[in-house]
Design a protein around this nucleic acid. Sequence first.
DNA 1: ATGAAAGCGCTAACAT
DNA 2: ATGTTAGCGCTTTCAT
Lengths: 343, 343
Amino acid sequence: MSRRNRPGSGRITLGDVAEHVGVSKITVSRALRQPDKVADPLRQRILDAVDALGYIPNRQAGSLASARTHAIALLVPSLSNGVFSDVLRGVDDIVQDTGYQVLLGHSGYSLQEEEHLVSTYLGYGVEGFILPSGQHTDRTLSLLSRSGLPVVEIMGLSDTPIDMSVGLDHEKAGYSMTQALIEAGFQQIGFGGARMDYRARQRHQGWQRALREAGRRDDICMTTTRPSSFRFGGALLNDMMTRWPSLDALFMCNDDLAAGALFECQRRGILLPDDLALAGFNGMDITASTEPALTTVMTPRRTIGQEAARRLLARLEGDSSLSSSLDVGFEIAWRASTTRTRR
Amino acid sequence: MSRRNRPGSGRITLGDVAEHVGVSKITVSRALRQPDKVADPLRQRILDAVDALGYIPNRQAGSLASARTHAIALLVPSLSNGVFSDVLRGVDDIVQDTGYQVLLGHSGYSLQEEEHLVSTYLGYGVEGFILPSGQHTDRTLSLLSRSGLPVVEIMGLSDTPIDMSVGLDHEKAGYSMTQALIEAGFQQIGFGGARMDYRARQRHQGWQRALREAGRRDDICMTTTRPSSFRFGGALLNDMMTRWPSLDALFMCNDDLAAGALFECQRRGILLPDDLALAGFNGMDITASTEPALTTVMTPRRTIGQEAARRLLARLEGDSSLSSSLDVGFEIAWRASTTRTRR
DNA sequence: ATGAAAGCGCTAACAT
DNA sequence: ATGTTAGCGCTTTCAT
């Protein structure tokens, strides 16, 4: 067919299709991208040839020529954490069928790795970023700002946003849950945390503020920066019950820890909520299924993904009608793990 | 600085750096990619300029010129399923610091979407694929075979592998677990499933074969193709207990279902394992933490990711010393949920 | 409605 | 050790 014999990938190119049909490359390009600009019968012949030859456009070349990649980067701390897969689903909801492509990166909760990802994806020519609010390295900030690309920070709400922002106030959420526990009559309210990232620390601060404002002790707290797990939730429960036997409510900074603590209570015969009240954070599915069901703070993660993607795409399409900052709020799901039937 | 004013992305290019330093583009390129080929002092000046100007190489251009992307695609059915994030971690273990980049795609358990992803990533010029074994559309197969790229099928073991394969025999694993339950003395062993993908169906077949070989009834089974969840595990338990009150062991096709069923048992006062034995599949963390702990089939998912990546990279580097097919095996974690202390 | 020429930013191959 | 030339595969002008 083709008389050429390039050293390249050996793949079929636009030129091969053009040659096959007997038209110029640009006509094939048009037939694919702006079908109405090519006469019907010719376009059909071209599409047939594309199919017959198995032509797949080389995006590198396309992007290079057009200076557009139609790719956006979604950076998350972790992909094993269900919280972020929900966000991803939201982003997909919106990006699907827009012609944009989502490049996913996970930093493993490392700011250094996040910086590396930003740099890498800039090299890939992404047209915008969605990444967690909170801390970033100076270089991350400078890379983003130099790039001039739209950025949406998600999950939290930033006082000093890089650009746009979609999330909720974790300090306020931690405060609200703690206050709810206070109002429910619990006396010694502890806080347990793992993987204390930016937002987990904010929840902790909310817990502390609520206790202080109520004149309660705010020292019943154990946290670690190590990863969160069911197992560690159980360990945390044991350690805290040993150190503060009079503890009567425990607010865990995420649902995994809360569920792990719940399991440990079952194991030890600690009755929830009469011996101890237990609350989590995020409203993961598991919290609705355990026995007793776990009280938790519901966070609309899929909505966060959707609204973040919506804003990013709007900006890329030159639409600036959307607010650049959105508080998606939260809701406390008060369930059996904190509901005492008798005192 | 630069007197040019291109319509392009406005980004700093190799040429800008070269001009700034007063050398040719290729020297800058070398200084970055083959540092030892550029004299020390000059290289330092170049690196300084790169830093000062904030130059980030354009990968599209680089790939286009070199016909190499150093990118591989990892396709998984779902990213909310913890099973696959473990695989991803394994892949990362190996790919990290090799200069290769992992492009992640999730098909939502849709073969059509998988095909679309393969096509998309071929357009991105990936140099290899890691994807779930099992069914693929004809076009997926033809795209892959035409591409000539190395492919590793993971999770399951294929009779007719596309290329390479790393996983375990899910039929055998289902068989083994069922046989273990039979040997433990359980009489009416049911199977519950959701999201019945290729591998879940194999587990089901293993369950059935074990029962048939033992001359037991093999009709105590409820499955759905809808997504799996804790909630559905509970519903399944209820439905099955209603329909088959004499059921004394339930093998769930994954740990989420098993955990959901366990919670429902706690709710209904069904004692595990004396009233009912419960087993899951995968060995997710939760199984070790529940009360009682859940018997499950441990699958070395991180290893699968590692070995798959190892094989793919080896092939890309021209090394063919590794076996093209690897059975990573499985292990039954026999725990309290199936261990009767008395009969 | 279709085409020709030029060039995106980089690297391979071949100089020097 | 450094430079020159050509070209990757596509899209953007600007023609016709």
